[in-house]
């Protein structure tokens, strides 16, 4: 067992793992109680596991616990609450941009990262910026509207 230290949602955090190659996703979900990030493929192909590492949208299924050590990790749970959602989450709620919602974590976190880099994106830029995130229910048009709304664009 080795101990890994990082910032989790603004607080110092430690996690133990028997395998330095263990993906951060399982550490977050099973050891640190962060169920927001979801297992979708384990291959970096769908985005359901997305977290922010040092502010940037990152696939936690491909990031090992050793790579995450020393970094600042943000999960969706830290953005806001159902009562006080942050701007992106509030836009998803207003647009009802969710069906089964299994992809929603990845959508919100990717949008968060996208808007941090480009606060006033065009619709086309949002489409390209979200291209790596899959939604199976077909909620795409609502998710796009939610991200545009979060950017302050009229929808």
């Amino acid at each position: 067992m080795a101990t890994y230290k990082f910032q989790l949602n603004g607080r110092p955090s430690t996690a133990e793992s028997w395998d330095p190659a263990q993906p951060l996703l399982y550490v977050l979900r099973n050891e640190l109680g962060q169920h927001g990030p979801k297992f979708g493929c384990g291959l970096g192909q769908c985005g359901a596991c997305t977290v922010l590492i040092d502010g940037k949208a990152t696939r936690s299924c491909l990031t090992t616990v050793r790579q995450a050590a020393g970094k600042s990790i943000t999960t969706i749970e830290a953005l806001g609450t159902p009562e006080k959602p942050d701007a992106v989450q509030a836009a998803f709620i207003a647009e009802q941009a969710s069906q089964c919602g299994y992809c929603t974590n990845g959508m919100v976190m990717t949008a968060k990262s996208l808007l941090a880099q480009n606060p006033k994106p065009t619709l086309e830029q949002v489409k390209q910026g979200m291209a790596g995130n899959l939604c199976r229910c077909g909620t795409h048009t609502r998710i796009l509207r939610a991200v545009m709304r979060a950017s302050g664009a009229a929808v």
Binding site: G36, P85, Q89, F92, S98, T104
Partner: peptide
């Protein structure tokens, strides 16, 4: 939806 958008909806997973 507010639970899903904030990572708090509890799935069987």
């Amino acid at each position: 939806v507010p639970l899903k958008a904030t990572g708090r909806h509890v799935y069987v997973q």
